[in-house]
Nucleic acid binder design. Structure first.
Lengths: 226, 226
DNA sequence: GTCTATAAGGAGATAGAC
DNA sequence: GTCTATCTCCTTATAGAC
């Protein structure tokens, strides 16, 4: 629990550099050599502090992604506390889900490593990352599925889960490559500018959540008649 | 234009195998050795037929992605022809955009390599793939932006482009990993089952497109007052 | 067109001095 | 804790026989 300050500096430098390189080129193409060069530390330091490249990936993941999901649940609990009974506002639930990524980036001060890191992780083919994502996201998505059911009770929960996953995909895509957005809207929509993209996404997703479900969707194990 | 049948078989076998391996593990982790083993051909055949790994990637891309975008424009033209004046139906425009991916998969008969290949390509960090995607998608997105403006004239075009990109992200995520969807909905929502996920996405995105824009959004270079 | 053999380099990981 | 030097493996790519 009391690492020497020097160790802390080296370790943090590696984590910061790894995060940036992962965000830029993806996990597979990010070589340890490239990371240590950026961090200004020795090659062997990575294996000393993290054991392996996979260990480094897990450390980056745990430092950044886990707190965001914890924050999501925290904000959702606040929304639920503010509305102890009756319907929850859809926009508030969606904001609880989407804002923590934006928050983390702002609090951190660094460029937009964080945003792109999330975008990369969502689509990452590696099995170990997939397991980490599932373990972290599974419970969170289930939890938000229940909350959305309270927000839009007329839509069956399985359908709301579909829509929540659509929202996750849209968010991941939004974080992945700001340049595409900027170019296609002739510079008028730049996700790096701040919360504009987030606000647009919340409006879009909230309307989608409220769309009437298809006839027959969500039947069966739903408790709504025989 | 008249390659020997044997060459055609080897070439096609490589393309098929590459497509499958790319879909499974992503472009970076897909080694040529793994691809030729799956195709049952010799290692050197890849370089003989495609010059390099990048050449192979481009060939896979051109065989599968380009036709889908062409088909998108074709379907959109049909929608516009059916409604020569007045508003276009949003759902029809979205279906023109989203269905070709599903169609390609059904027509092909192979497993769901194709679907996952698309999911991988959208988030691919490689620059050459990024260029190919931009060149292919840029004009298509601009074209669909105009069409959406005809479908939802009260929403400014830049906002519709945001929303179209959200839809692209949702679609890419939908194709990426069917298992997540299935698990989270306890087996009731399986994108592999067919067009169900597509129909859900169209409903979701159509409602999102129709959402009122935020006050002040899309001002400036829009031609709606000074 | 297809094969074997191999070149040339980059990757992750480690041993052992300091 | 940090460094240098190196090991081992796997990658893309090519040369040249058939």
């Amino acid at each position: 629990m009391s690492p020497a300050p020097a160790a802390h500096d080296t370790k943090t430098a590696i984590l910061d550099a790894a995060e940036a390189v992962f965000a830029e080129v993806g996990l597979a193409r990010a070589s340890i050599r490239r990371i240590v060069q950026r961090a200004g530390v020795n090659l062997a330091a990575v294996h000393y502090h993290f054991g392996s490249k996979e260990g480094l990936i897990e450390a980056v993941f745990n430092r950044r992604v886990a707190p965001v999901n914890a924050r999501r649940l925290e904000l959702l609990a606040a929304v639920e506390a503010a509305h102890p009974e009756g319907a929850l506002p859809v926009e508030a639930v969606l904001e609880a889900f989407l804002r923590p990524m934006q928050e983390a980036r702002e609090a951190d001060g660094r460029a937009d490593h964080l945003r792109r890191l999330y975008g990369r992780l969502v689509g990452e083919p590696s099995e170990s990352v997939g397991r980490m994502m599932s373990r972290q996201f599974g419970p969170v998505l289930q939890r938000f599925g229940k909350a959305l059911k309270r927000a839009v009770p007329e839509v069956p929960e399985p359908v709301l889960l579909w829509r929540l996953l659509f929202t996750v995909g849209a968010a991941a895509h939004l974080m992945l490559d700001p340049l595409v957005f900027k170019k296609l809207t002739r510079g008028r929509c730049d996700p790096r500018a701040g919360a504009e993209g987030l606000a647009e996404l919340i409006r879009f997703a909230a309307a989608g959540m409220r769309a009437p479900a298809a006839a027959g969707a969500g039947e069966g194990d739903q408790e709504e008649g025989s």
